[in-house]
Design a protein around this nucleic acid. Sequence first.
DNA 1: TAGTGCATGTAATGCGTTACATGATTTC
DNA 2: GAAATCATGTAACGCATTACATGCACTA
Lengths: 160, 160
Amino acid sequence: MSSTSVTSVILGLLALGPRSGYEIKTTVDRSTRFFWAASYGQIYPELRPLERDALVPREDSPNGVRARRLYRLTDAGRDDFRRWLLGTETTEEVPDDNLLRFFFADTLPRDEALLPLEGRRLWHEALAARLREIDELPGDDPPFVDLVLRWGIAYSEWGA
Amino acid sequence: MSSTSVTSVILGLLALGPRSGYEIKTTVDRSTRFFWAASYGQIYPELRPLERDALVPREDSPNGVRARRLYRLTDAGRDDFRRWLLGTETTEEVPDDNLLRFFFADTLPRDEALLPLEGRRLWHEALAARLREIDELPGDDPPFVDLVLRWGIAYSEWGA
DNA sequence: TAGTGCATGTAATGCGTTACATGATTTC
DNA sequence: GAAATCATGTAACGCATTACATGCACTA
């Protein structure tokens, strides 16, 4: 399975309940859009290989009369998703993966649900440390440039 | 002049002092990288039209012996940059422009330097309002999805 | 009955990153 | 004298957005 963010998000949304491609898109637009967006051009093509890997077998189930394809997670798919969700590959730099895991934390049982949250916190701390490092070395930065750095530091620290 | 972010950033860095393409890249890597990055593939090609528009006439000035092209802002370029910096086109959704204006605020005289900061605050408030709106309508979201929304709201409110 | 929303998909387009080419110069 | 850094640039590639094509169904 290809491991881009789209894959994980699709799997995650299907873990919350069966959906069509169209619904995946609208859900993303309502929820993660502010930090992570997706377009039909990503979603529909990605559904194909996911079917192939037996992760999401589709059921042609017309809702009322209108034709649409509902996708549902198989156990294998649920496992794959769980593996991603509990994964901790520190994707240094980009906050996406961290936030997305955070976002899907409630698909986990109660006693594990805090792990993604913890991962996010660790990432925040790592970022804060790196920014502080930069802030302390040369010293020839104009005031506002420095302010943005401080803002970044404060922002990271606030994530705890 | 094309009005992508690269343009503004190049202009902004040159407003802080003359630089070469290489130095523009390294400066960006040290400073804005965490929220806005640029590659040679963007920087060097963009320098050409900026020259054409007489914004940044280059001077072939070997530093010591090594050949490099220093770029300096013309008055016209400074004006263009100032116009962008004080601009308030609310680029709804994407925080980049806001943060970048924030970042370059110290190229402005003291009495105007707070304007970009204010712009950033307004953007934060607008975002917070929108998230709160979303948070309040349907109500069928699982707990952590809601938590992320609340996180977004808190984050936005914190920007004040 | 005209317009909007549901629904699936693909092709074109745009844009940024990665990788490469090239060469001088400092540093170890 | 080898490796790292300074320095400028371009071509290929990958990937996501935009726009388009298509058609049914609900609603004003």
